[in-house]
Computed example of a mutant assay.
Amino acid sequence: MRLPTRRPMHNEGTSFDFDLVVVGASFAGAACALAAAQRGLRVCVLERKRDPGEKLRTTGIIVKEAAERTMLGQAPASLVRRIEGVRLYAPSLEHLNLSSPGYYFLTTDTPGLMRWLAQQLRAHGVDLRLGSAFSDGERIVDGWQLPGVGRTRYLIGADGARSRVAKRCALGEVRDFLYGIEYEFPGAQLAHPDALHCFVGKRFAPGYIGWLAQNPTGIQAGLALRHDPTNARAPDIDAFLLHAGVAGGLPRYLKPGQVRAGLIPCGGPVANIARDRAILVGDAAGIVSPVTAGGIHSAWDHGWAVGRAVAARLRDDGPPPEQVALQTAPSFRVKRALRWAFDHFQMDWPFDLLLHTSPLRWAAEQVYFHRNG
């Protein structure tokens, strides 16, 4: 892809090394960096991992909207697998098959996808620094000074639910979490590979679900639950797979390869998302659905909007990016209300009793197929 010729920017001086430094090279950070780089800005991305595909904390499942409206749809075919249906399991392990005409999900070779994103950053002229963690920053006139990096006009925190950028810049911090763990079974095949298998049940997944999915390299199996910092416990994924694995078509006696685990924001956007040329995006900003915990599409859109806003501010004297970051963050009002209800009133018997009824099917289709956006 040919890069645009860089024009002098509004009030541009020579004292800044970068127009924006993005901390974190996952979906939101990559989107922000790419959007800015495409407008000719000088962009640096700091990623603490030496390999962007290691130690992941995402399922990597991409919804149709993200596949068709973002650069993620350009990922190599070898990195994605199309799935067109959902199989929803009640606590009794009875299931309901769900689908919507034309709707699909893409499971991914997630480590491969993150490495591909890193390649895209460098192809677009981004200074990607792997193995470089954000340590500190000092506010200066019209920007930030970062040790070992230099001066930047804007600092973008895309560094996850426990954002160091948020703490250093006195921005809002994520308070409400799910805790998830996921196994990868390389080379394995589900008995029913063309569905996303989702398990509801308070015993193993209070506040969320368990899941099985076929991806390009094998099977991914996960479990998440509401995180209570006063009584924290890890999801018992081994017991869950013994209970639900056969129903979901998981072959017996598999040994997991890669294991992923981490906190997932579920409370909606943080209260103070931006100030003083520091902006949060993605998990750091709480841009994750409180109901489904899906964050790739919304994180990409928000990161992209912020990257474009920085470029518009510097090149065209556009509105403050801090203002755009706030305006383009999804509110999730209805989903936050559903999250509260699920946390306080989750019971197994309604799912068992109502699984095959029209109201439950309708509600599940709204959640999984984004019929209300």
Results as ranks from 00 to 15, higher is better:
T217F: 02
K167N: 04
L171S: 10
D176H: 09
A232P: 05
N215V: 06
A195C: 14
A166C: 09
K202C: 12
G218T: 00
V174L: 02
A191M: 05
P235R: 04
K202E: 14
H192W: 13
N231C: 12
N231T: 08
R226F: 14
R203E: 13
Y179M: 11
R203W: 05
E173P: 08
G180H: 04
D176K: 08
A170T: 08
A234V: 13
Y179G: 07
G172N: 05
D228M: 04
C169E: 03
F199N: 07
G222D: 01
G187F: 00
P206F: 11
G172Y: 05
A205E: 06
H197W: 00
A205K: 03
Y179Q: 04
I181V: 15
G187Y: 00
C198Y: 13
R203N: 08
L212C: 02
A213I: 06
F204Y: 15
L212F: 15
A191D: 08
C198K: 09
R168Y: 05
C169A: 15
P193C: 07
L212W: 05
A213S: 13
P186R: 01
G172P: 06
A213D: 02
L196R: 10
F177Q: 09
A213K: 07
H197C: 04
F199K: 09
L171M: 07
R203G: 11
G172R: 07
R226W: 12
D228R: 11
A221G: 13
G187I: 00
P193T: 07
A213G: 12
A234E: 14
G222R: 08
P229G: 02
T230H: 15
R175L: 12
V165E: 01
D194L: 09
P235V: 03
R233I: 03
